[in-house]
Design a protein around this nucleic acid. Structure first.
Lengths: 164, 164
DNA sequence: TTTCGTGCAAAGCCTTTGCATCCAT
DNA sequence: ATGGATGCAAAGGCTTTGCACGAAA
């Protein structure tokens, strides 16, 4: 995700989440704060397992159970901070949905690289199609599969080690 | 899927599948034939559970076990006859990939209904984006999530029992 | 104090698999 | 006969949930 500029946000993810909890009458516990921080400490895509191990490696004693992580992921998705982007091998993969511009992905079938792109006309199309069907769009997932520039070049070997 | 015109195909799904099995040195058993026919008897989207119940309602005694259905779905996907299109409520939903035109889906988060749509300008956009990134597109998967017309209507309760 | 949240383990769900039996070549 | 295929039930893998304990307000 590093090649897209971060959007200027007035409110930090923590604050945004705090707000969300407020409206729901929920509490910002230490565990919840720990998770939000861990999630937004890196812009990488991640699945639940990866998040759990990042949390379990903490040396400050702020450990969080797997159940709580699952419960938190739901909250983060509901609150608009996170969104699921893909599901390779039955593991849901998430990415930041807040403080980051809307985008979609070109996915190289060869090396697995994810290339993010933004295209506004896409939304226009979706809106039009939705309207024609009396449908109210809340989100979309567009995955474009193919071969990236690197892998199209004959010289270089595909980067098999690249993940997600 | 019924409002999309079927593409003319020289070979029937059964024949195509038979061919595939041949190349793999596998057999076309009665069970496999039954499943291919049942799958291509209707153009509707379906999940494994639905296919299983359709099969179990047969009166001709041609029943097939759930395991075999799962094993067959893999084969049908591998052979290019079927493709997974969405995963509402954690159930993989499949559709015909052979003898049917390219299209995308509106997916109702409420009742799980899939609405197909075709939009040519979408491909133009993808091509343009791909070119800008030196990417060669081979396929795409676009899932638009939201609320369908039925579920938007306040009168009627969302159809919780409807699956797909 | 009282309500909400956490952790643990158990349960759920869909899917895959081991294995004995069966069947098409 | 002889592999591959089927069915059944059991096992897997990820996710959800019931419940008692613990922590905010």
């Amino acid at each position: 995700m590093s090649d897209l500029a971060a959007v200027d946000v007035a409110v930090s993810p923590e604050d945004k989440f705090r707000e969300y909890l407020m409206t729901k009458g929920m509490r910002l516990t230490t565990e919840r704060e720990t998770i939000v921080r861990e999630v937004f400490a890196s812009h990488e895509h991640f699945d639940v397992d990866q998040l759990v191990s990042r949390l379990s490696q903490r040396t400050d004693g702020k450990r969080v159970s797997r159940s709580t992580v699952y419960r938190m992921i739901s909250l983060l998705v509901e609150s608009g901070l996170l969104r699921p982007v893909a599901r390779p091998n039955d593991r849901e993969v998430y990415e930041h949905d807040y403080g980051y511009p809307q985008h979609d992905h070109l996915i190289c079938k060869e090396c697995g690289t994810l290339i993010e792109f933004v295209d506004d006309s896409l939304n226009d199309i979706l809106e039009r199609v939705a309207e024609q069907n009396g449908f109210r769009v809340s989100a979309h997932r567009l995955e474009v599969y193919g071969k990236c520039a690197d892998c199209c070049r004959p010289k270089r070997r595909p980067r098999k080690t690249d993940r997600i």
